[in-house]
Write a protein that binds this DNA or RNA. Structure first.
Lengths: 214, 214
DNA sequence: CGTATTGGTGAGCGACACTATCCAAATGCC
DNA sequence: GGCATTTGGATAGTGTCGCTCACCAATACG
């Protein structure tokens, strides 16, 4: 398969594919000679994943490169690779430690994790980018004077834990080992919009049930 | 309160505030004379909401203007205003109707809504931007050969319905009438990152429990 | 043999959220 | 009253980012 074929089969323009190659999001094809390179189905799958990350997940190109680097790192075990890849995904700004809202948010988040009994998350808290994202998000809410507290959020945490269990069950039953890392990354990115849309739909539905459509 | 005071109290630069005024995201202050305009706490609150929409929610300026227009539309009843504002929020591209993945996704989404018994959502399906977002998201998954079907997703739908019920309960108990529309918009935007972070944290936690940290 | 196509590269584009600079009118301090 | 300072308002510029275009010599194809 040559570049033009890859383009046709994926629906991505050759110019964009070249750009991805340049940016290291797509491994180079097998160079046959100065004007021909051969691509395979692996490239096609990788290209789809890249598009998913960038277009659906709005992941910046630089972050995508990092994530994919972890996915490909053969020197690591599967679990670590998966962790590293997911770990690299979030792209939230560093919290401003001088902001009192951030400090308060940190305390409240820790209380929430304690309530939920998420011990691992508490231990990893200082390191985890996801934890940082949560603190930033909560600080944002507090700055707008939202009554956000651990007791109020705990049920949402339980709901998300239930979702997470389903996610992992799904991963175990539906992916062969070699694809698990890739699939986990794709899920993390592609599932998000689905969940969000479901949430909003549920809000519309419940709102209509309570107050009518008018 | 003059422009400079508004800037100090909100932490937003005067240049940016001027930009928002120009873009119609912030109503003009009460003009006292050619060089002085007076702003009040309403402006401060609105400014915070604008920042939340744009910075946290990544809502494009044009969309934010539209959403805020609905929030302010005194000619509508509360429920309609809320609906209109939330409907204007999503900013997903139009689905490509020629794409077979989109058609298949539409069928599967409808089956899901039937399974869940979300009748209102099914009726409103052709109109709702949220429904459209869901179809686009599902089509994206299918294009990557994800085994996505209604039965698999139904439990997630139930979880989101549970979350939606909590959302509305919260809104009813914590906001006075005049602020409900504004608060609903803020929640829709600010809650999203919190939920997402909780979801990822839950995945980390559950993954650690199953496979260890290594 | 000649046209078309290949992969590679540097520069350019369009969208977007600001931001820097000016400006004339008005204020505030002495 | 005088004069530097500050005000709101307008215009043009900046930085970032994900592409996209134009062009190149080398090669493939009919």
């Amino acid at each position: 398969m040559r570049l033009a074929d890859l383009s046709k089969r994926s629906g991505v323009s050759t110019a964009t594919i070249k750009y991805y190659l340049r940016e290291g999001l797509l491994p180079p094809g097998r160079q046959i000679n100065a004007t021909t390179a051969e691509y395979d189905d692996g490239h096609l799958r990788r290209l789809r994943l890249v598009r998913a990350l960038i277009q659906v997940g709005k992941v910046p190109v630089a972050t995508a490169r990092e994530v994919l680097g972890h996915v490909d790192d053969e020197s690591l075990g599967r679990t670590i690779r998966l962790g590293a890849a997911l770990w690299a995904l979030p792209q939230d700004p560093e919290p401003d430690e001088a902001d009192p809202a951030v400090a308060a948010a940190r305390v409240e988040v820790d209380r929430l994790l304690e309530l939920l009994g998420w011990e691992t998350s508490r231990e990893l808290a200082p390191l985890s980018p996801v934890h940082r994202s949560l603190v930033v998000a909560v600080a944002g809410l507090r700055r707008l004077d939202y009554p956000w507290d651990a007791e109020l959020m705990a049920p949402y945490g339980e709901l998300m834990m239930e979702a997470a269990r389903r996610d992992l069950d799904f991963l175990e039953t539906h992916a062969q080992d070699s694809e698990k890392v890739e699939m986990a990354v794709a899920s993390a990115v592609l599932f998000q919009p689905v969940l969000r849309a479901l949430h909003r739909l549920a809000q519309e539905e419940e709102s209509a049930r309570r107050y009518g459509i008018e």
